[in-house]
Nucleic acid binder design. Structure first.
Lengths: 225, 225
DNA sequence: CCTTGTGAAATTATTCACAGCC
DNA sequence: GGCTGTGAATAATTTCACAAGG
């Protein structure tokens, strides 16, 4: 009932919300109006009780005997995820990965406009990628302020990553998504998440080497990372 | 002591092993011969007790009063992660992301040779990317057998992802790393992990929208994804 | 009937704290 | 003195199971 109390939402739940959001968007597209936790769980590949518990952190949006209204639930999840606002992104490191991300639909699609592309390489600065001119990293502070950059994406080589992150933080960017295979540290009030290809490969290699203990990884559909 | 008993290693530990491996490689490069759990924890950005517990799953490789021998510990972790073998990778979906990954050092570097690049697009098939000619997806079964592909990386658009995964599974590939924003299901004995840009952005957007409950995400360095 | 929302139980992960060893 | 390895304690998460609502 209390809506403005500190309803702390567990991190694993937060990580599953985007999954539900995606599944619900698909359902909405296909004209489904109502969905039960059991059905949502089946499609999302998780346990039904978990779905109900997760959704209960957002509020009581279901109807006993019926389920959840797809459109309404979707709007509540989107609101909770902050998808009713825009979060301008700056990508630092315009190599192949940076370019690929700049062109990626996952970005440009709703909510995460690319506000700036930055690099230090002479040959890259000035180039146009995905409709955006690459600027020199030295212009970061200015660009971040002007464009109100909320999220910094780091796609530089590992040795530069900490320095780039420091610059992003100094420029007031308070959420960072790091793709560089490096350990990064940030001040207390900055959010940092990693996406690491080689970690993922190593984890797969581990479980392939130990088929006898692959339990946790197996068993069908699993979600997000 | 019992080395062949079912020492089940918790998944969170498995996910941290690549982090330790990376940190230890850096230490080896810089000539450090011995490291304590406290130092390793500090550099890796985790709790020292957690480091000791994680390492204890591998065996008793430390020396009380001294710490761990960097080179020896590194070799044990690498062995445990299966990095003493090669795991040939096939990348399916040679758009910008597929190309970026094909060129990525995280791959080509030790242990994960690119055995095949596959696509269905006429214009792409036959092209050479990162020293490898792109073949048509229909040749998957043949290529997978010949090259003993162990890991399939899916970088197609979401609507094709499940079909591509089904084909990989049919071709005998038993570990899959999916970059497509789709829910995928696989048979019981297949390993599946996801890397999902838009999930990561949504999670950051969530915590930016809820500064009051950002607890779990904050607090300095955090590892892998 | 059906389904939600949620306490309570079970499971899993982290952290503490210290005995034992160097 | 310093440090590992690990039981025990704590915390977090998942799952169960059911009362209450439609």
């Amino acid at each position: 009932m209390g809506d403005r109390l500190v309803r702390r939402i567990p991190e694993p739940t937060v990580v599953r919300l985007p999954l539900y959001e995606r599944v619900l968007r698909d359902m909405r597209s296909s004209g489904t109006t109502t969905v039960s936790s059991a059905r949502l769980a089946e499609v999302a590949g998780v346990n039904a009780a978990k779905v109900r518990k997760d959704l209960s952190y957002l509020g009581s949006y279901g109807t006993p005997g019926t389920g959840y209204d797809v459109v309404f639930l979707l709007s509540q999840i989107a609101r909770e995820l902050g998808l009713d606002q825009e979060w301008p992104v700056a990508i630092v490191g315009i190599g192949s990965l940076g370019r690929a991300l700049a062109r990626s639909p996952g970005f440009t699609s709703r909510g995460f406009p690319i506000a700036a592309l930055l690099d230090t390489d002479r040959a890259t600065v000035g180039e146009e990628v995905a409709g955006c001119v690459v600027r020199h990293l030295d212009e970061l502070a200015e660009v971040a302020r002007e464009q109100r950059v909320a999220i910094g994406v780091v796609t530089t080589p590992a040795p530069s990553a900490q320095d780039v992150v420091d610059r992003l933080v100094a420029a007031g960017v308070s959420s960072i998504l790091n793709f560089a295979p490096a350990v990064i540290s940030v001040p207390e009030n900055v959010l940092l998440r990693h996406v690491d290809l080689s970690t993922e490969l190593h984890v797969l290699a581990f479980y392939q080497s130990h088929p006898e203990i692959a339990g946790p990884m197996l068993a069908g559909t699993r979600a997000s990372a």
